[in-house]
């Protein structure tokens, strides 16, 4: 690893100050969990001049229910997501997604924010958060701004973050609290595997008409960034819930995906996976919707 200057931020405002100090005239990298960053830096021909450590920044480690929705601090680790009673209650899909990331050791270090900032198209946190229309808060020297996650990603390993900004929190909007969601990942093995394809599906149910409401599908590893599947979503919107509709939505989602062939899988295989996983994710989300209704959840959009 190339040498660099190291600064540890005490809190998020200190982190922003440090970034502002150094980003103007030096290449700066932020280290949180370090599971992606260090693996990269060890073999990088040109490393950063400055590394700002935010792993001790406690104000970005909270999971909070606010007026805006469920706020997850960017430094919440995958392990904390898996153990959080709030997330387990509202979004088991996020727990499933976190569980498929790396292995215990990397989940203990790696953070939700880090997973998003790395912006690898196969990231496992992406599809679920896309299907839940998450919003991210970005902190910079001039204050904080919020953008939909959909607009946060630019391309492979590229986000809209400026060199002096950091991702502060991820918000699942209030209208989606408890929205039945399911995440599925297909990797070549269980542990330490990158997704060939990962899919998350969410929808509300109009129980009187038995139709899909606000269906949202997130797809990973099938485009330069994590994407939504607009055609499949449009196909499902207002349609009567049936096994056939879910299978067809899977087929439609293939048209939304633009996978490439690489050493892990061919584009053709990835397209096949999109259809199958989308269908299965919808089926499981449907099962969850029914279970929650039986358990006395409102079952409606609660906003």
């Amino acid at each position: 690893m190339k040498s660099f200057e190291f600064f540890a931020a005490k809190d998020s405002s200190d982190a922003v100050t440090l970034l502002a100090q150094h980003a103007a005239n030096a290449k700066v990298k932020i280290i949180a969990g370090g599971t992606d960053l260090l693996a990269d830096l060890k073999f990088a021909a040109h490393g950063p001049d400055v590394v700002v450590d935010i792993s001790h920044v406690d104000d970005l480690k909270n999971i909070t229910l606010t007026e805006q929705g469920l706020n997850i601090g960017a430094l919440v680790t995958h392990t904390q997501i898996m153990r959080s009673p709030l997330i387990r209650q509202f979004f088991p899909a996020l727990v499933d997604a976190a569980h498929t990331i790396g292995a215990v050791q990397t989940r203990n270090l790696g953070t939700l924010g880090g997973n998003l900032v790395t912006a690898v198209p196969s990231m496992d946190s992406g599809p679920t958060l896309m299907a839940l229309e998450a919003i991210v808060t970005i902190a910079g020297n001039g204050g904080r701004r919020q953008v939909p996650l959909n607009e946060f990603f630019v391309g492979p390993r590229k986000t809209i973050l400026k060199p002096d900004e950091l991702l502060a929190e991820i918000i699942i909007p209030k209208q989606n609290l408890g929205k039945p969601t399911h995440f599925l990942k297909f990797g070549l093995r269980k542990g330490q595997a990158l997704a060939l394809v990962n899919v998350a599906a969410s929808f509300w149910v109009d129980w009187e008409k038995n139709v899909f409401l606000a269906p949202r599908i997130g797809l990973g590893a099938v485009a330069p960034k994590v994407i939504r599947a607009p055609q499949a979503e449009a196909y499902l919107e207002g349609r009567t819930i049936s096994a056939e509709a879910m299978a067809e939505a899977g087929r439609v989602a293939v048209g939304d995906a633009k996978p490439i062939s690489d050493f892990r899988a061919s584009a053709e295989y990835r397209r096949h996976l999109v259809a199958v996983l989308t269908k299965r994710a919808l089926e499981s989300a449907w099962t969850l919707a029914q279970t929650r209704r039986l358990e006395g959840w409102n079952g409606q959009r609660n906003a």
């Binding site: 007026e67 392990t79 904390q80 153990r83």
Partner: peptide
């Protein structure tokens, strides 16, 4: 900006 927190959940480690 986020509203004032209602329920605060501490990280699990804590």
């Amino acid at each position: 900006m986020a509203e004032k927190p209602k329920v605060i959940e501490k990280p699990d480690v804590l």
